[in-house]
């Protein structure tokens, strides 16, 4: 389904979602993607609707929303390390451009011990996980101007190996005017 989003005019910080969301190529897949924070998702129809963020006034360009949907018929146990599911961004997962130029990753990298069962996140069949990602933890988005963000790299693992996941082809755009 094609979903179109309109331009949002905001007083201080603009978020202009450019393009459109996931198109599922097969019914039983893991699907991941990013969305602007204040876009609500109707999970039953998987349609994204714009909200009147201007009215809310709570838009923060610092944060974006990451989602992971388990559209398979079986539960999965996925390791959040070095993915957008972590509390603190710890890997160069996004492609962020500022005024057309690629920004280097200025976030952290972490040495970890071997994962244990408790480190995994369980997602039941059909379940969806959302997490907020603070872009500033990994990229310098402090300059006023236009930014674009794409989720470039996502390596999901369960206890036995790498999981296949489809990344929704979404580019988020926003403009910092402060």
């Amino acid at each position: 389904m094609l979903i179109s989003m309109g331009l949002l005019m905001l007083s201080a910080c603009d978020v202009v979602p450019n393009e459109v969301s996931a198109k599922q190529t097969s019914p039983s897949q893991l699907v991941a993607g990013i969305l602007p924070v204040d876009v609500a998702i109707n999970t039953s129809t998987t349609e994204a609707e714009t909200t009147t963020a201007a009215a809310k006034g709570t838009q923060r360009t610092n944060e974006i929303l990451f989602y992971l949907e388990n559209n398979t018929s079986r539960p999965i146990s996925v390791l959040p390390w070095n993915t957008p599911m972590e509390k603190f961004l710890s890997a160069d997962l996004f492609s962020v451009t500022f005024e057309g130029k690629q920004l280097p990753y200025t976030g952290r990298v972490v040495k970890r011990a071997a994962p244990e069962a408790k480190d995994y996140i369980n997602l039941a069949a059909g379940e969806r996980l959302e997490s907020l990602v603070m872009l500033s933890q990994g990229y310098d988005i402090s300059q006023p101007g236009e930014y674009k963000v794409v989720l470039e790299s996502l390596s999901l693992q369960d206890s036995s190996g790498v999981l296949d996941v489809v990344i929704a082809d979404t580019t988020l755009s926003f403009t910092n005017t402060w």
């Binding site: 990753y105 200025t106 952290r108 990298v109 972490v110 040495k111």
Partner: peptide, 11 residues
Amino acid sequence: EEVFAFVFPSR
């Protein structure tokens, strides 16, 4: 955190 260590390569 329950990790070994980390650095910011840019710092």
